[in-house]
Design a protein around this nucleic acid. Structure first.
Lengths: 367, 367
DNA sequence: CTGAAAGCGCTTACAG
DNA sequence: CTGAAAGCGCTTACAG
C-alpha cells in the first residue's frame, strides 16, 4: 500500500501548477534549454523567483545518472622536489569525501621539466571534458592557451600554487607571496642581531624564458616583502640577492661560497623556494658555522634539517589544503551551485622543530 | 515515452534478485531492522558483502525525507572573552555547505559562568534528539553525564577545544596542549637572551572545583611543554608560574607587579589562555618597558596589541576550523558513513604582526 | 514549442 | 516474517 502522500509545495511540480505548464517545460527553463517560448519562459522564471525555488540536489543527482568528473593537472613528484606530494594528498582526501557523492577525480601529472608533457596531459583533459579542473600554472603561455580552451568547452578552472591573469578562471587558492616575505622579515628581525646582513637566494633550474619569468616573479615578490618589512619598521638591513639557475648542490655551493667569503656577518640565509635543504647540506658538509636558515615548504629534506636544528624556520602556504580546497571549491560550484570567492589566500604557516609534525606530508586534513 | 532502461547491477534490487526475496526485506537487513529470519538475514548479508554494496545516498536521502539535524553546544561570546566567536563562524561555514544537502544545524550557546545554563541547553538537545552534537566540555562532570545520555539516545558527540575521557565519543578535534607549550618554548628561546627568566601566567575566573580543575589542567600541560623544551635543548631557564583567579585588569595588575619587582630580568611573559591582552594593557598603561609577550588565541583585544607590537607572538589551534571540521566530521560519519579518526590534533599556528590578517575572526575557511 | 510518462534507487506504510 | 506498490523530486527520451 502506498504511504501518505505529501507533495512538496515548492518543487518543480508546484511551479508547473502555478504556471499551468508541464514539469518538463519548467525543467527546460531551469536549465536554460532551448525550445520554450519567451512568454512562458518569463512566466516560469517569475514564479521560480517568487517561490525562491531551490532544486533538490538528491533528486537531481538520482534522476540524471550523470557521473560528475573533475581533473587535476599538476606536476608529478620529481627528483628535484617532493613539493607536489602535498597537493596530491589533499586531492586524495577530497576524493574520499566526494566519491560517495558520485564524483570521480582523474589525475594528470606532468613532468615539470618538460613542457610537452604538460601539453599532452592538457590535451587528454580537453578530450575527456571533465566538469572542472584543478591546475598549477607553471608554463605561463601554455597554461593560458589551455584555460582558454577550457572556457570554450565549459570546463571550470581552479588555480593553485600560483595565479595567472586568466579571465574566467573560477578562483585562485594559494599563498600571498609578498605577505610571506613580510613574515620572513619579521622572523629574521626577531631572531638575528640588527646589524647582520640577509642573503636572499633563489635556486631553480632555468627552463627558458617563460618558466624563469614565473619563478623570477615569485622571488621578486618575496624579496620585496622582506625589504618592505625592514623599511616599515625602520630597521635597515643590507639585503643581498642571488639567483642560482641550477639545483645541484655543487652548483649552489660554487656560487654561495664566494658570497660568504665576501660578506662577513650574514645573519640569515633565506631561500625563496623549497631548496633551503641544499644550503643546509652545504653548511653541514663543510662544518662551518651557519647563520639562521629560513626557507619555504615542508619537504622531507627540509624537515630532516629542521629536526637537527640546521634549518631554523620553514614557511609554507598549506599545499595540501590547496589541493583539498581546490577540489571542494569545484564541488561547491558545480554540484551545489554556491558562489565562490575568486581569490582565496591561504594562511602562511610558520614551521619549527616543535610543530612540524602537524604539517608533515601524509597527514590528512579531515579524518 | 520511457527512456532506455538500464538497471544498476549492484543496487538493492540486484541483492533482492540474488537472495530471492523482496527489496523490502533487503532494506530491513541493511538497516538492522527486526522482523527478518536469521536465515534470510545471513543470506542477504553474504550477498551484500560479495557485491560490495554501496548504498546510493541520493536515493536514500530522497526517499526518506528525513531531515538530518546537528546541534552545537558551546559557550556564547562573553564580556570576558570573544574566543568562542571563532568556532561559531566555522559552524556557520559548515552550515552553508551542508544546508543544500538537507542538513540543519541548531546552536545552543550557554553562559560559561553559569553551569545551569549549560545543563538547560543540554536538556533541550536531549529532547530534540539531533543525529549528532558538537560540544566543548567546560564543566567536566555535567558534560560527562550529558555524553552518557547522548550515547543512550544514539546521539553522536564530537568534542572541540578540550577532550574528555568519555567513552563512545566520536572524536576530539583540537590542539595538543603539551606540544603548544614546546612551541612557545622554541619561540622564547629564539627571541630572548639565554639568562632571562620566563613568567608563565594563567588568568581565569575561579568557578569552583570542576571548572578550575579543567583550567588547571590546561595550564599544567602547557607549562610542562615549555619546561620540557628548555630541558630537551639543554638551555635552562628559570620559569615562574602564577595563577590569577580573576580576569579584571586591576586584579591581574595587583598580582603581577610584585612579581615584576621581585624578579628582575624577566625576558618573556607567557599567558596560557586568551588573556595576554590584559597583561599588554598593564604595560601600556604604566609605560614600563615590556618583556617579550606571548599568548594564545586570536581575539580582537589580542590583535590590537599585536598590531602595535606590544604582544609579540600569539599561538592558536584554529578554533574556527575546529567548529568547521567538527560539523563536517558529523556529516562524514552520519551521512556518508565514513570512518572517523578519534583524535584529530589541529596544527598550532604562530601568529605575528605580519600574518594575523589571515587568522582573524570573520575570515571564512572555504569560499 | 509543449506534455505524458517512465524511471533513477531507495524508504515507507501497509497487507498478509 | 515477507512482499507489492507508491512515492521522494527530479531528468530523460520520446510523441505531437
Amino acid at each position: 500500500m502506498p504511504r501518505k502522500d505529501k507533495t512538496a509545495l515548492n518543487g518543480i511540480k508546484e511551479i508547473a501548477r502555478q504556471a499551468r505548464v508541464s514539469i518538463a517545460t519548467v525543467d527546460r527553463v531551469i536549465h536554460n534549454r532551448t525550445g520554450v517560448s519567451e512568454k512562458t519562459k518569463e512566466k516560469i522564471k517569475a514564479i521560480i523567483g517568487a517561490l525562491n525555488y531551490q532544486p533538490n540536489i538528491f533528486a537531481r543527482q538520482l534522476a540524471s545518472r550523470k557521473k560528475i568528473e573533475f581533473a587535476v593537472l599538476i606536476p608529478q613528484v620529481s627528483a628535484a622536489t617532493s613539493y607536489w606530494k602535498a597537493p596530491i594528498e589533499g586531492v586524495l582526501q577530497a576524493e574520499k569525501e566526494l566519491m560517495p557523492l558520485g564524483i570521480s577525480i582523474s589525475r594528470y601529472l606532468y613532468d615539470q621539466q618538460h613542457k610537452e608533457s604538460f601539453n599532452q596531459a592538457a590535451k587528454k583533459i580537453l578530450k575527456k571534458k571533465p566538469a572542472g579542473v584543478l591546475l598549477a600554472p607553471l608554463f605561463v603561455k601554455d597554461t593560458t592557451a589551455f584555460v582558454k580552451a577550457c572556457v570554450a568547452a565549459k570546463i571550470q578552472c581552479v588555480f593553485i600554487d600560483a595565479d595567472l591573469p586568466a579571465e574566467n578562471r573560477l578562483c585562485y587558492i594559494g599563498g600571498d607571496l609578498y605577505q610571506s616575505g613580510m613574515l620572513a622579515g619579521h622572523l629574521i628581525k626577531y631572531s638575528t642581531p640588527d646589524k647582520t646582513k640577509v642573503l636572499v637566494l633563489n635556486i631553480s633550474d632555468d627552463l627558458g624564458e617563460q618558466n624563469s619569468q614565473n619563478l623570477q616573479h615569485r622571488l621578486l615578490q618575496k624579496e620585496a616583502g622582506i625589504r618592505a618589512y625592514f623599511e616599515k619598521y625602520k630597521s635597515p638591513r643590507q639585503i643581498i640577492t642571488l639567483v642560482v639557475p641550477k639545483t645541484e648542490a655543487l652548483a649552489v655551493e660554487k656560487q654561495l661560497l664566494p658570497i660568504l667569503a665576501e660578506h662577513k656577518n650574514i645573519g640569515c640565509i633565506c631561500v625563496t623556494n623549497s631548496r633551503i635543504s641544499t644550503v643546509a647540506g652545504i653548511f653541514e658538509k663543510r662544518k662551518i658555522p651557519k647563520p639562521m636558515l629560513l626557507g619555504y615548504d615542508v619537504t622531507e629534506a627540509n624537515i630532516d634539517y629542521l629536526k637537527k636544528g640546521t634549518i631554523d624556520f620553514l614557511l609554507c602556504d598549506k599545499p595540501q589544503e590547496q589541493g583539498y580546497r581546490g577540489m571542494m571549491v569545484l564541488y561547491q560550484r558545480l554540484v551545489l551551485g554556491l558562489p565562490i570567492e575568486s581569490i582565496q589566500f591561504m594562511p602562511i604557516d610558520i614551521i619549527t622543530r616543535e610543530n612540524y609534525m602537524y604539517y608533515q606530508e601524509g597527514r590528512t586534513l579531515l579524518q
